[in-house]
Design a protein around this nucleic acid. Structure first.
Length: 841
RNA sequence: GCCCUCGUGGUGAAAUUGGUAGACACAAAGGACUUAAAAUCCUUGCCCUUUUGGGAGUGCCAGUUCGAGUCUGGCCGAGGGCACCA
């Protein structure tokens, strides 16, 4: 039999795919989008998985009559281009574009149904011009602000570092100790939408619960009480926020953030300056903060207890109080908050219990840690005896009466800092005038282009160092002005690309409203879980921000359905010197031992981890496609593991996939060369019914993203066909049914399926097969027969067989009757078309 | 520390959503074909029984139910998110 040459049929079909679109002009729209890649150089298995899943959905929807939008583009601004440029003495744009070229060719090898006419790249002027325009719209709508904020400052590179660039408190490249430094930065006022972003999560039925929960926690809404403490012998007040106002009588100190305005009073105090310096040494990373020791600075100030003027509360500055949450001030109740407890221990402050767990003995004992559980109030004046919840309500009432505060809702979500001191990003379209004011660039002057001649080798902000770039003129007055030299965070680029895809060539504006209103929201978005919070939240913000200035846009949630796929993993290998080895440098001996090919030395087989360049446990998709064909790679990556879970790459697995696809090809050949047989209509009817069942099942499985189970159905179908080749089934019937099966395979293995369909002379290569549902109503049904809950037999019965008839059969059947004879049936449980259960004593 | 998710053969997993546990695949062992190998195909997979068959069994312990992988409570373990957020 002729073996199929996957490589040659794939080439043939890829040519056709590249010019065909998934357009059904009469169909309902379906926007299928996968997270677009960063053009890092070559595609990796993670891309293969992401885009294969997307392709299955896009093709499946198209075959079912939908009008499908399936675009692809490049998230092409970002730091790696600058680093690569610096290392290889290239320009970032050349490096980026050459990577795009390579990766595009590679993606095409996968046989994806992408409409490349819609391709966009965020580093193109055609793209970032519109981004600058959107920025100006946001600015004019009051959604942009300029604020001072703390950043990770690398004193050698003279630049701001992202949190992930700070390793153990040091700059990742310079190795300098990173400082906390205050810098004026641009912000998108995402916190204006905190409540909306939180509440609308509930409408997102098509999102994984996990992602919604992560966003919810990130937004972090909390209810509490704001209240003012009067400072003794001063007109100043301290406004604090607390979620535990009930513990007010346990307050033994007040702690202020080192950046609190009261600090001005101590600006000449040597000890305070020293303390502040100590605090600024800790970076801004979560890790650094969490591991930091609690330190404080005791002032000579005291606050009055709001409910008992006799009580004087000492005021401290403390490093664990954050300036950008609440008001940068807290009252410390050491007995019922662990941080306050730690602080009180260190500075020997009193610890007063105000919540009792109900055990009188405990009330007298010294605490060894803060008690944060439930209980009744004690030592709390008018609150005594109340529960925590009752006490909270009462205190808030009192605070309102005294006009010193009230109920308050707070969000953890902070505004989105978008300034980056980088070259390879979208320039922020703002200019500084001679009078010191800052205004947006006139829209007709857009795009503000990046200068091609840039020196990336000196530290600091490259655009700022450019000899001429920042010099410009105010278009209104003609007076000289200076450009903003910061560029935008690359998360901005990916916060609206899905809108651009609706009209990627539209010149006038960022997008054509009509097109956006037709295609948006994205019906299925597919990508990695690592973007669960930031990218998705920012995109949700963008959609809302756009609606503020563009009232013609209807959509406010960009992604109707979200699917987050798992990672691709592989074993790791180390040689005898502890160096990582690539899988193709080793030879497996057994499942847990291997040798290095070059010198036969022993290799340590390590744990299975997600593929990463640093651990060298990567498999090159192009090599795999070369060896096994794209369909085999696609087939393998969809088999075995559910798509939301991590998958383990295995050589034997992909080889087996390839063999199976070869068998499918062979099956088609055998059927075509089959000799027609006389029919047995009963056999044939059963055969067709079974195929119809498979059509229904596979359809449902794809709708549920259970691709691994769908793949298993095809293995069964293959066996099923093989078993029926020798039976009395006409050749036409075999052909018409294998044709249906090949149509079912199009989304999974588009090249092979189309090739087979061509051989079968199919006229329906753009339609999903239909199952005859009426036939299925007459199918025989498996009835499980149980005695005392134990399965004793499975009967094949007609649809809707009655309990009486089944019992008759059961009693006449030796296999089951032996369990029932001479015994009294106490009770019978009967579920139609499912089960019958006889209960004996 | 707080929050969430998940524990099923040697492995990846499936299970009509409370109704035949282990579909399908990988790996392993045995066999068929072959002079041989490769390729291909078949069988097996816990315990008792020669077979027919019977029994146990979805991390552990209890509960609800005619019936629990699935529901409830507790424990143990793994993974993830957040984290001086007051």
């Amino acid at each position: 039999m002729e073996r199929v040459n996957f490589r040659s049929i794939e080439k043939k079909w890829q040519k056709k795919f590249s010019s065909s679109k998934l357009t059904n002009s009469k169909g309902k729209k379906f926007y299928c989008l996968e997270m677009f890649p960063y053009p890092s150089g070559k595609i990796h298995m993670g891309h293969v998985r992401n885009y294969t899943i997307g392709d299955v959905i896009a093709r499946f929807k198209y075959l079912n009559g939908y009008n499908v939008l399936h675009p692809m583009g490049w998230d092409s601004f970002g730091l790696p281009a600058e680093n690569a440029a610096r290392l290889n003495n290239l320009s970032p744009i050349d490096w980026t574009n050459s990577n795009i070229k390579t990766m595009k060719t590679q993606l095409k090898l996968l046989g994806l149904s992408i409409d490349w006419d819609l391709e966009i790249s965020t580093c193109d002027e055609d793209y970032y011009k519109h981004q600058q325009s959107l920025f100006i719209d946001f600015y004019n709508s009051g959604l942009v602000s300029r604020k001072e904020t703390y950043v990770n400052w690398d004193p050698i590179e003279k630049t701001v570092l992202a949190n992930e660039q700070v390793i153990n408190g040091r700059g990742w490249r310079s190795n300098a100790v990173v400082e906390r430094r205050k810098l004026s930065q641009w912000f998108f006022n995402i916190s204006q939408f905190s409540d909306e972003l939180l509440e609308d999560l509930e409408k997102l039925d098509g999102w994984p619960q996990k992602v919604k929960l992560m966003q919810k926690n990130w937004i972090g809404k909390s209810y509490g009480c704001e209240l003012n403490f009067k400072i003794q012998n001063s007109s100043d007040q301290i406004k604090i926020f607390t979620t535990r106002p009930d513990t007010i009588f346990g307050a033994t100190f007040i702690a202020l953030s080192p950046d609190h305005f009261l600090g001005h009073q101590f600006k000449n105090n040597v000890e305070f300056i020293k303390f502040k310096k100590e605090c600024s040494k800790t970076g801004t990373t979560e890790e650094a903060l969490a591991n930091a020791d609690k330190i404080g600075f005791k002032t000579n100030l005291f606050a009055e207890h709001p409910f008992n003027k006799e009580i004087k509360i000492p005021i401290y500055f403390a490093n664990f109080v954050l300036m950008d949450y609440g008001n940068g001030a807290i009252f410390g109740c050491p007995a019922h908050d662990q941080r306050d407890f730690d602080f009180a221990k260190k500075y020997k402050l009193p610890i007063i219990k105000v919540v009792s767990d109900g055990n009188k003995e405990h009330d007298k004992m010294k605490l060894i840690e803060a008690y944060t559980g439930v209980g009744k109030m004690i030592n709390s004046s008018f609150l005594n005896g109340l529960s925590i919840e009752e006490a909270k309500i009462k205190i808030i009432e009192k605070v309102k009466e005294l006009k010193i505060g009230g109920k308050k809702t707070l969000f953890r979500l902070k505004d989105w800092g978008i300034s980056r001191q980088r070259y390879w990003g979208c320039p922020i379209p703002m200019i500084y005038l001679e009078d010191g004011s800052c205004v947006p660039v006139d829209k007709k002057d857009l795009p503000i282009k990046l200068p091609p001649d840039i020196n990336l080798n000196s530290p600091g902000n490259p655009l700022d160092h450019h000899p001429t770039w920042k010099n410009t003129k105010d278009s209104k007055t003609g007076k000289p002005a200076k450009r903003e030299t910061d560029t935008l965070d690359t998360f901005v680029d990916s916060s609206w690309y899905f809108l651009r895809f609706c009209s990627p060539k539209f010149k006038k504006e960022a997008f054509d409203n009509e097109k956006v209103n037709y295609w948006m929201p994205v019906d299925q978005y597919i990508g990695g879980i690592e973007h669960a919070i930031l990218h998705l939240l920012y995109s949700r913000f963008f959609m809302r921000a756009i609606k503020v200035s563009n009232t013609n846009v209807n959509c406010s949630e960009p992604f109707q359905n979200l699917f987050t796929q798992g990672m691709v993993c592989h074993e790791t290998y180390k040689d005898k010197n502890g160096n990582w080895l690539y899988p193709n440098e080793i030879k497996k001996i057994k499942s847990n031992s291997a040798i290095k090919i070059s010198d036969n030395s022993k290799v340590t087989v390590g744990p299975i981890e997600s593929m990463s360049k640093s651990k060298k446990n990567t498999i090159d998709p192009e090599e795999m496609i070369e060896k096994y064909g794209a369909d085999s790679v696609r087939w393998f990556i969809l088999s075995d593991s559910p798509p939301e879970k991590d998958i383990q790459w295995s050589d034997t697995g992909v080889a087996a996939s390839s063999k199976f696809l070869q068998k499918i090809w062979n099956l088609n050949q055998v059927i075509m060369s089959n000799k027609s047989k006389s029919t047995n209509s009963a056999d044939e009817k059963k055969f067709v019914e079974k195929i119809d069942l498979y059509i229904l099942k596979i359809t449902e499985l794809i709708n549920n993203f259970q691709f691994n189970v769908a793949v298993a159905q095809f293995y069964e179908i293959y066996k099923f066909f093989n078993n029926h080749l020798q039976k009395n089934i006409r050749k036409e019937t075999l052909i018409s049914n294998i044709e249906k099966v090949m149509r079912l395979m199009i989304p999974f293995t588009p090249h092979l399926a189309n090739e087979c369909l061509e051989v079968l002379n199919s006229k329906n290569t753009d339609k999903w097969p239909k199952a005859n549902k009426e036939l299925l109503n007459n199918l025989k049904i498996n009835i499980v027969v149980q005695v005392n809950g134990k399965t004793r037999d499975v009967l094949q019965m007609e649809n809707n067989t009655t309990e009486k008839e089944i019992t008759k059969t059961v009693l006449s059947n030796l296999k089951t009757s032996k369990f029932l004879s001479d015994k009294k049936i106490v009770k019978t449980i009967f579920v139609k078309n499912r089960i019958i259960n006889y209960i004996l004593n």
